[in-house]
Write a protein that binds this DNA or RNA. Sequence first.
DNA 1: GCGCCCATGTAACTAGTTACATGATTCA
DNA 2: TGAATCATGTAACTAGTTACATGGGCGC
Lengths: 184, 184
Amino acid sequence: MPVKSKTRYALLGILNLSPMSGYDLKKFCDEGVSQFWNENYAHIYPTLRELEREGLAVAETAQTQGRPVKRIYHITGKGQKELNEWLLMPVEQAPPRYELILKLVFSTGVPVENIREKILRYKEQNEKALADVMAGENKIKNQPGANNLKWKQLWIIGINSGKYSYKAAIEWCDDTLEILKGMK
Amino acid sequence: MPVKSKTRYALLGILNLSPMSGYDLKKFCDEGVSQFWNENYAHIYPTLRELEREGLAVAETAQTQGRPVKRIYHITGKGQKELNEWLLMPVEQAPPRYELILKLVFSTGVPVENIREKILRYKEQNEKALADVMAGENKIKNQPGANNLKWKQLWIIGINSGKYSYKAAIEWCDDTLEILKGMK
DNA sequence: GCGCCCATGTAACTAGTTACATGATTCA
DNA sequence: TGAATCATGTAACTAGTTACATGGGCGC
């Protein structure tokens, strides 16, 4: 089975948690999994139609007042099967493209103050992201059920990954700011 | 000035260190900056032609025995100006897409053994990457000149970023493997 | 004699983003 | 009354990857 767009699997995975509309899926991405995944409307809606055509999801249409008909998608058995096959497959890692680092190593001619600003900005972004994942952790832990339920543990593992990496990034920023102090 | 493909700037940045051919640029990406950047031939060659058309680089052709004419690209003043403008601009961060984490949080129905394998594999990849950056650090430090030269410090900062993030990833893996031990 | 290195490039494809288009409802 | 939310979608674009095509030289 060839791997297709990851959006397909992301949407199937979310629909497997609960049926929802394209709009809801976007919200879920922005609120529930934004620390490690994202999608935009222009990718979600066509992909949902594709899942429907292939019988991996079915749409239930719900009337709403004065708005476009709301299409609530449900994953099918075939969709669950395809999702599961994907979940079992090993993850190949994407080649890195860290623009910040690329700029840094080329920055011999750039004023140190400009470099410092970039690092400070990056630090702030990571502090914000860290705060977000900590909030997410609380949200998961406060869900009904014991904290050693498999699904809860898996979400906590995911959140942990953010914690570790954002903390490391913040430490690197502090380290770097120290080095920059002595640089002209 | 609108930001165009990052490949343009990556190539200009490397050409600013030293003139070279498309083939050399690819090697430089694979060997010198592979921890934070990558390019492939299908992107390099057309982009070089584009830089040439726009007067940001000029090609000097060198005869070789029995091989295609080697085109060695040199950055121009105009190219340096455009590179510098890009270097000064703030870095906007790319929205995250961590496939491993996405899979994990959907893996309630996946055997723990399969999850463990993914984590072990990820740990190995990070250990390898860490070893690579440590080797890179030595290479930089052994270059002629004092270690507090600006360009050296900038490369060390870049390498540090890899150190911090790979170490954090390895710790997360160990943490996760512990959690998986108690999971069914 | 086989495979890797040098050296260029194109075609076809997959993936992802930005901007646009529409329009009612709800809340401050 | 103006902004945010709900709700769908398309068009045009930018970015990036895989596979293909060519072919001599060099080391084992």
